[in-house]
Design a protein around this nucleic acid. Sequence first.
RNA 1: GCUCCCGUAGUUUAAUGGAUAAAAUAUCGGUUUGCGGUACCGGUGCUCCAGGUUCGACUCCUGGCGGGAGCACCA
Length: 561
Amino acid sequence: MKQVIATAIKDTLGELGFPDVAFTVSHPSDLHHGDFACNVALVLASDIGQPPRVIAEQIAGIIAGQIEYVDRVEVAGPGFLNFYLTRDFFTAEIARAREMGDAWGTNKEWAGKRIVVEYTDPNPFKEFHIGHLFTNSVGESIARLAMMQGAEVKRVNYQGDVGLHVAHAIYGMQALGISTDSAFTAKDLGRAYAYGANAYKEGGEPAEAIRALNKKIYDRTDDGVNALYDAGRAISLAYFETIYKVIDTQFDEYFFESETGPKGKELVLAHPEVFTESEGAHVFQGEKYGLHTRVFLNKEGLPTYEAKELALANEKAERLGGYDHSIISTSNEITEYFKVLKMAMSFVYPELAMKTEHIGHGTVRLATGKMSSRTGDVIPALEFIQEIAETAHEKIVSTGFTDASPELSEAIALGAIKYATLRGSILQDSVFDKERALSFEGDSGPYLMYTHARIVSVLEKAEVSGVSLISIIAPEEAYEVEKLLYRFEEVVTEAWNERAPHKVVGYLTELAGSFNTFYAHEKIADATDTYAPYKAMVADAVRLTLKNGLWALAIKAPERM
RNA sequence: GCUCCCGUAGUUUAAUGGAUAAAAUAUCGGUUUGCGGUACCGGUGCUCCAGGUUCGACUCCUGGCGGGAGCACCA
């Protein structure tokens, strides 16, 4: 529709003898200003020395009545052309949405192409905390938006099972007497890690011991260390799997630093023209490209994150049978490193470098203060979810909802968390206010879920009362909610193009608000109302949009709450 | 010190260079005894500072101020 209007305007410009200028056709921020607006007269004004409103009137005079589905064109404000669509357009869109069903909101832009999305990336031996929950929410949503573009998406999780942090944990295990003789849990590992990290910070002998351990972990020469390592790694990974089940995320492939490490080292050594020796280490000198120098192999000859990530790009391509695009979603602490890495990659793997994209997102802070896995002052993800689920359960019981199952409590808790983390731009740091996420009022995941469940319910009531969804007699004026509905496809595409899941959140919230206004003023389950069948169809299209939109955010849409 | 990100109602956040800067929350006041009140309607209240570009700037440019991250062997 946008394209149709743009073309018509372009033709009109030619007809009037105006120069061909760049203009935009967009949705006005206020629905009272029509469904589409064009700024062409404002752009032309200075070029041809006429007031914008005069130009706009000329264009409107010609274009009115020329475009199918455009009811009228008005000149407004400083000289905008406002296009109002016909009732038939909205009616047709409602029907189209309902026909498309689960495919509503998707397109074929990336059909036949493979996109790899790497996200979450928790490190074994460390706690899976709410920061991982945040990064998982972002990555999962990006992956789903990619799927909605028709791409074949491969979800990938990359985990640091070697490196200094593991040495921290092993050192802590030894110091705290955690051994394979007795059962230990992921929580014990978290404690051990915090202990080792603190010891390393103190420097001196413990730091030396940790560096020595790090080397042993790599070369596997010490049986005692190997035993601790193998048991710890297995317990960590099993623990992560239980979390993935809870947060509804599934990975196609897992990559480990223990595999990419040796390959990364090989790569660095094989490209001396790219990686130069400096102070005993192998570095990439980024200064030539406006970046900074980064170490790829340290002076002990061990690969750093950078070298491993380099090898990882190729590993992914090999194991997944190639890819058309590769997204790596991490917190923005990595952003600067990644620029250097990508530059280095452009010399080693030019084709892969071109397909690689890093998305750095902000970090979550709690209202109570910053959390850090180094001090052990973190909130474990599972405990956090459980706590919110318990509060959700209390609310369900006290308000007399039909379903008080633990599954529903958990779904609501996760909906609250995901919404809260995705509601703003992912670039920005965000503050997680627990009280707010738990309030379930206004802008919230449960608000959207509740609206969805209520539509399901009213549609059932409508059916029972004999409202048949066959009649398409619609009131002359389209409801406001209809004017938002057809934009869903555009929003999904925009959210994908800009890597901005919050666009979907904002849209769904506006849609739900608009529907709730509609619902408060219009009776749907009333067989005596001529318009009831049409209103039920509108409600059904909103239900579908909420369902598909929530899916893009990995939030469940229960039919009953 | 250098690089990157950010600065919007009391608070948390929106706004492809466009119209009266928008929601939620908090606060104040309402909802025709209506299909699920976790809802709906209304009031109060905001672009860090100083220049510049533009018909038009929260948005772009320059310089400040303030916050976060990074800046050689952690990830």
